[in-house]
Amino acid sequence: MNQFNFDELSNLARLDPQSFFDLRSKTIRSAILTIGEVSPKLGALQDQIDEIRARTVTPQASLAAITALLEQRMVELKEAIASARAVLNPDIKTQSPGFKCID
């Protein structure tokens, strides 16, 4: 399967769940490897997501836990950007979380 085909994937998931998850994993890993330098970090994040999906009981619980994880990662990214900006240009003040310049 070279392109995303929802009907094909849906049928595969219904008829052969193991093959579906194998294909899903292979596709995700291939996409991550194309990212380059940040591939290890993105791979680690995907591992965390897969772990959450495996240990949660319902899709809703998975969604809530994955959303919380991604929200935390966004906070960390915003803090890293603010720190980098402060180092690169200490005259510019930033305000978290929107990074709006203030006088």
Results as ranks from 00 to 15, higher is better:
residue 88 L to A: 15
residue 66 I to A: 04
residue 83 S to A: 12
residue 48 Q to H: 10
residue 61 A to Y: 02
residue 80 A to K: 13
residue 10 S to G: 05
residue 91 D to L: 10
residue 17 P to S: 04
residue 99 F to D: 04
residue 24 R to G: 00
residue 68 A to L: 06
residue 5 N to V: 04
residue 36 G to H: 03
residue 62 S to H: 10
residue 87 V to P: 07
residue 42 L to D: 04
residue 40 P to I: 02
residue 9 L to V: 06
residue 94 T to P: 04
residue 35 I to G: 01
residue 71 E to D: 14
residue 35 I to M: 00
residue 100 K to H: 04
residue 46 Q to L: 07
residue 36 G to K: 00
residue 103 D to M: 07
residue 4 F to R: 12
residue 95 Q to H: 07
residue 18 Q to V: 04
residue 37 E to V: 03
residue 80 A to M: 12
residue 89 N to D: 15
residue 60 Q to D: 15
residue 17 P to C: 00
residue 70 L to H: 08
residue 51 E to A: 12
residue 80 A to Q: 14
residue 5 N to W: 02
residue 86 A to F: 14
residue 49 I to D: 07
residue 64 A to W: 10
residue 81 I to E: 06
residue 35 I to Q: 00
residue 38 V to W: 14
residue 25 S to V: 08
residue 70 L to F: 07
residue 3 Q to H: 12
residue 78 K to E: 12
residue 61 A to M: 13
residue 45 L to K: 13
residue 68 A to C: 09
residue 85 R to I: 06
residue 79 E to F: 10
residue 34 T to P: 00
residue 61 A to H: 13
residue 97 P to Y: 00
residue 99 F to W: 01
residue 47 D to C: 05
residue 20 F to H: 04
residue 90 P to M: 00
residue 36 G to S: 05
residue 97 P to Q: 01
residue 85 R to D: 11
residue 50 D to E: 13
residue 94 T to E: 06
residue 8 E to F: 07
residue 86 A to E: 15
residue 83 S to N: 09
residue 36 G to R: 01
residue 86 A to Q: 15
residue 89 N to C: 11
residue 84 A to K: 15
residue 3 Q to K: 13
residue 32 I to Y: 01
residue 21 F to G: 02
residue 29 R to F: 00
residue 37 E to C: 03
residue 101 C to I: 13
residue 16 D to Q: 03
residue 27 T to L: 02
residue 45 L to H: 09
residue 47 D to S: 13
residue 69 L to S: 06
residue 7 D to C: 07
residue 51 E to K: 12
residue 6 F to V: 08
residue 20 F to I: 02
residue 21 F to Q: 05
residue 99 F to S: 07
residue 51 E to S: 12
residue 88 L to V: 11
residue 68 A to E: 14
residue 64 A to N: 12
residue 27 T to F: 02
residue 92 I to M: 02
residue 36 G to L: 01
residue 28 I to C: 03
residue 87 V to Y: 05
residue 71 E to L: 13
residue 30 S to P: 05
residue 62 S to P: 07
residue 101 C to P: 11
residue 64 A to S: 11
residue 100 K to M: 05
residue 66 I to D: 05
residue 37 E to M: 00
residue 66 I to R: 09
residue 85 R to P: 06
residue 37 E to S: 01
residue 17 P to F: 08
residue 18 Q to G: 06
residue 30 S to T: 04
residue 77 L to C: 10
residue 63 L to Y: 13
residue 98 G to S: 03
residue 48 Q to D: 10
residue 72 Q to K: 14
residue 82 A to D: 09
residue 79 E to G: 07
residue 41 K to G: 14
residue 72 Q to C: 10
residue 64 A to Q: 13
residue 93 K to D: 05
